[in-house]
Protein backbone atom coordinates (compact mmCIF):
# COMPACT_ATOMS: atom_id res chain seq x y z
CA UNK A 1 0.00 0.00 0.00
CA UNK A 2 1.11 3.55 -0.72
CA UNK A 3 2.35 5.63 2.21
CA UNK A 4 0.66 8.92 3.07
CA UNK A 5 3.73 10.74 1.78
CA UNK A 6 3.43 9.02 -1.59
CA UNK A 7 -0.30 9.69 -1.65
CA UNK A 8 0.32 13.38 -1.01
CA UNK A 9 2.69 13.52 -3.95
CA UNK A 10 0.28 11.68 -6.26
CA UNK A 11 -2.68 13.82 -5.23
CA UNK A 12 -0.73 16.88 -6.29
CA UNK A 13 0.54 15.33 -9.52
CA UNK A 14 -3.04 14.36 -10.34
CA UNK A 15 -3.68 18.09 -10.71
CA UNK A 16 -0.92 18.39 -13.31
CA UNK A 17 -1.01 15.17 -15.31
CA UNK A 18 -3.17 12.14 -15.94
CA UNK A 19 -2.31 9.47 -13.40
CA UNK A 20 -1.79 5.91 -14.55
CA UNK A 21 -4.44 3.32 -13.79
CA UNK A 22 -2.15 1.75 -11.18
CA UNK A 23 -1.61 5.11 -9.48
CA UNK A 24 -5.32 5.88 -9.46
CA UNK A 25 -6.11 2.50 -7.97
CA UNK A 26 -3.42 2.91 -5.31
CA UNK A 27 -4.86 6.29 -4.38
CA UNK A 28 -8.41 4.99 -4.19
CA UNK A 29 -7.52 2.12 -1.89
CA UNK A 30 -5.53 4.39 0.40
CA UNK A 31 -8.18 7.09 0.54
CA UNK A 32 -10.87 4.59 1.59
CA UNK A 33 -9.06 3.95 4.84
CA UNK A 34 -7.06 7.12 5.53
CA UNK A 35 -8.98 10.05 6.99
CA UNK A 36 -5.98 12.36 7.10
CA UNK A 37 -5.21 11.91 3.41
CA UNK A 38 -8.87 12.50 2.59
CA UNK A 39 -8.64 15.79 4.41
CA UNK A 40 -5.36 16.57 2.68
CA UNK A 41 -6.92 15.92 -0.72
CA UNK A 42 -9.71 18.45 -0.10
CA UNK A 43 -7.31 21.09 1.19
CA UNK A 44 -4.93 20.57 -1.71
CA UNK A 45 -7.78 21.03 -4.15
CA UNK A 46 -8.73 24.22 -2.36
CA UNK A 47 -5.15 25.51 -2.68
CA UNK A 48 -5.29 24.77 -6.43
CA UNK A 49 -8.68 26.48 -6.80
CA UNK A 50 -7.35 29.48 -4.92
CA UNK A 51 -4.36 29.70 -7.24
CA UNK A 52 -6.64 29.76 -10.24
CA UNK A 53 -8.87 32.43 -8.74
CA UNK A 54 -5.85 34.46 -7.66
CA UNK A 55 -4.41 34.75 -11.15
CA UNK A 56 -7.59 34.44 -13.20
CA UNK A 57 -10.41 35.69 -10.99
CA UNK A 58 -13.86 35.28 -12.47
CA UNK A 59 -15.51 37.72 -10.07
CA UNK A 60 -14.51 41.25 -9.10
CA UNK A 61 -13.14 41.36 -5.59
CA UNK A 62 -11.47 37.96 -5.92
CA UNK A 63 -7.79 37.36 -6.45
CA UNK A 64 -5.53 39.96 -8.02
CA UNK A 65 -7.35 42.73 -9.87
CA UNK A 66 -6.48 43.35 -13.53
CA UNK A 67 -4.40 46.27 -14.72
CA UNK A 68 -6.39 49.42 -14.01
CA UNK A 69 -7.89 51.38 -16.90
CA UNK A 70 -5.66 54.33 -16.03
CA UNK A 71 -2.51 52.21 -16.15
CA UNK A 72 -3.65 50.57 -19.36
CA UNK A 73 -4.19 53.94 -21.04
CA UNK A 74 -0.90 55.29 -19.75
CA UNK A 75 1.11 52.29 -20.92
CA UNK A 76 -0.61 52.23 -24.30
CA UNK A 77 0.12 55.90 -24.89
CA UNK A 78 3.78 55.36 -23.95
CA UNK A 79 3.98 52.46 -26.37
CA UNK A 80 2.46 54.64 -29.06
CA UNK A 81 4.87 57.45 -28.32
CA UNK A 82 7.86 55.12 -28.65
CA UNK A 83 6.48 53.75 -31.92
CA UNK A 84 6.06 57.29 -33.25
CA UNK A 85 9.62 58.17 -32.28
CA UNK A 86 10.84 55.08 -34.11
CA UNK A 87 9.05 56.26 -37.22
CA UNK A 88 10.68 59.66 -37.03
CA UNK A 89 14.20 58.28 -36.70
CA UNK A 90 14.00 56.03 -39.72
CA UNK A 91 11.18 57.04 -42.01
CA UNK A 92 10.31 54.39 -44.58
Amino acid sequence: MLSCKEVGELLSQGLDRKLSFREQLGLKIHLVVCKTCNCYEKQLQFVARSARNLMRPNKPGQGIPPLSDEAETRINSNIKQQLDEEQQIKPE
Partner: peptide
Protein backbone atom coordinates in the same frame (compact mmCIF):
# COMPACT_ATOMS: atom_id res chain seq x y z
CA UNK B 1 8.28 20.48 -12.08
CA UNK B 2 5.56 18.21 -10.70
CA UNK B 3 7.60 17.50 -7.57
CA UNK B 4 8.23 21.22 -7.06
CA UNK B 5 4.55 22.02 -7.50
CA UNK B 6 3.67 19.38 -4.98
CA UNK B 7 6.04 20.97 -2.43
CA UNK B 8 4.63 24.41 -3.13
CA UNK B 9 1.05 23.24 -2.61
CA UNK B 10 1.93 21.31 0.51
CA UNK B 11 3.62 24.36 2.00
CA UNK B 12 0.73 26.63 1.03
CA UNK B 13 -1.73 24.20 2.59
Amino acid sequence: MWVMLSRARMRLR
